[in-house]
Structure formats: structure tokens, C-alpha cells
């Protein structure tokens, strides 16, 4: 943002396009990250839109009810609809907040701050992945896989009336949350590499923490996608 404010002062908006300078006041690396995320957003959008199309094809009547599918919580057992997934959402949001803080400390050239907040970010990512692993394991244990449909008891646990959902639900769930989880995993790996670089002072020597900002964008994007995955699978 310093970049932006400085250049705005240096050049009036009208001639930033005249060449010899970056028209958005942004270095190419950050710009590339943004456009890569735009491109990646199209992949996720294609998945989510396919989800919508398939859901409409199957029909609303036999689409499973999220409150029944996702009502488990570790240790506590069943009967807590959406509680666990809300926890996952909060973890991811918080992790995203930590990342913003890391980026801000990076702008202040505060190495210690970056280490602290980036460390929290990575922990948040790992926590999210662990939660997702638990959720997947739980659902697979309950019989929902890529090739067998979701089942649950309509009137709550122990009521006996079994609802059998369409195959498509489980397939879409695992594909899309899996693809999201793959992004989170990549994010954690990249964050860790950047974290080590921060610790070893690579960016201190370079006199900028741009790399933290770039991986930060990626991390927020993962959060952004989760918001829509959350909407598709748990809220609608």
C-alpha cells in the first residue's frame, strides 16, 4: 500500500499508463499472484457451478439436509448440526487474520512480528487440515464415499427411518472440499518455506517482505474459496 500511495503522489493518475512505470503501482510479482488467483477462481467457480447444475439435475427433494449430514462433533458425538464446520470456518478466518498481521508487520520490517504471526497462520492452517481430516474420516466411516451414497436417519439419531441421498452429493463433497484442502496444504507448505526464509533473514537482506505479501494473498484466497464452499455444502 505504501507503493500505491507513493506513486499516486508521484504521478497524477492520468499518466501512469504512459510507460516506464507500473500502472497499478504494484510490482509484477504481486500482479502475477493476483491474476493467478483470478485464474484459480475460475477453476473453483467451475466446480461450484457444476455442483449447482448437478444438484438441480438430481432435484431438491432427494438432496440431503446439511444439518443432518454434518451434525457430529469430536468427543461429543452426534446432534450438533454445523457446530464442527463453524469451528473450521473460524479457524480459517482467524488464520487469515494472522496472515494479514504478518503482512502488516512485514511492511514495518518487523522480523519478530512476522515470525510470530506467520507462525500462528501456519498453525491455523494445520488445525484446519486436521479438522477436515477428522470430518472426512467421520463421513467415510458413516458410509459416504465416492461410490456409495450418503445415508442418515431422518428423525435424528436412533429414529430408524433412513434417508439415502444421491451418489452425487458425496462425490461433489469430496471433490470440492478435497480440491480446497489441496490448496490449503499447498498454502501451508509455501507458508512454511516463507517462514523459514523469514527466520533465516532472507527478506531482511532483500529489504522487503514482498514474498510474505504474495503468499498472504494466496492464503486469503483459500479463505475466500472456503466461504463459497461453506455456502454450497453447509448453508444451502
Amino acid at each position: 500500500m505504501t507503493t500505491a500511495t507513493n506513486t499516486v503522489q508521484a504521478n497524477s493518475e492520468s499518466n501512469v499508463w504512459e510507460g516506464g512505470q507500473a500502472p497499478f503501482g504494484v510490482k509484477y510479482g504481486k500482479l502475477m499472484m493476483w491474476y493467478f488467483l483470478l485464474s484459480d477462481a475460475f477453476t473453483f467457480a467451475a466446480f461450484l457451478i457444476s455442483y449447482g447444475a448437478i444438484r438441480f439435475t438430481v432435484g431438491q427433494d432427494i438432496w440431503p439436509e446439511p444439518n443432518r449430514v454434518f451434525d457430529a462433533f469430536p468427543v461429543l458425538g452426534h446432534g450438533y448440526p454445523l457446530l464442527f464446520v463453524s469451528l473450521m470456518t473460524f479457524i480459517l478466518i482467524l488464520s487469515s487474520v494472522f496472515m494479514v498481521r504478518a503482512v502488516q508487520e512485514g511492511h514495518q520490517m518487523n522480523k519478530k512480528g512476522v515470525i510470530l504471526w506467520l507462525g500462528f497462520t501456519i498453525l491455523g492452517g494445520i488445525a484446519f487440515l486436521s479438522c477436515q481430516a477428522w470430518e472426512w474420516a467421520h463421513l467415510i466411516h458413516n458410509g459416504m464415499t465416492m461410490t456409495s451414497p450418503i445415508t442418515y436417519e431422518i428423525g435424528g439419531h436412533g429414529s430408524g427411518a433412513v434417508f439415502v441421498g444421491p451418489l452425487a452429493f458425496g462425490q461433489l463433497f469430496f471433490t470440492i472440499t478435497g480440491f480446497h484442502g489441496f490448496h490449503v496444504t499447498t498454502g501451508v507448505v509455501i507458508n512454511t518455506i516463507v517462514f523459514l526464509n523469514v527466520v533465516f533473514g532472507t527478506y531482511e537482506k532483500k529489504k522487503n517482505y514482498d514474498m510474505v505479501e504474495k503468499v498472504g494473498l494466496y492464503w486469503h484466497f483459500v479463505d475466500l474459496v472456503w466461504v463459497f464452499v461453506f455456502l454450497g455444502f453447509y448453508l444451502l
Partner: peptide, 14 residues
């Protein structure tokens, strides 16, 4: 998320 976390609000409009 996009405007504040990803900082897009503070970038140039273009």
C-alpha cells in the same frame, strides 16, 4: 476478505 484482507480496497481502482 477481498477488500480488507487482500487489500484490494487500497489498490488503484484500475
Amino acid at each position: 476478505i477481498v477488500a480488507v484482507f487482500m487489500h484490494l480496497k487500497y489498490e488503484r481502482k484500475a
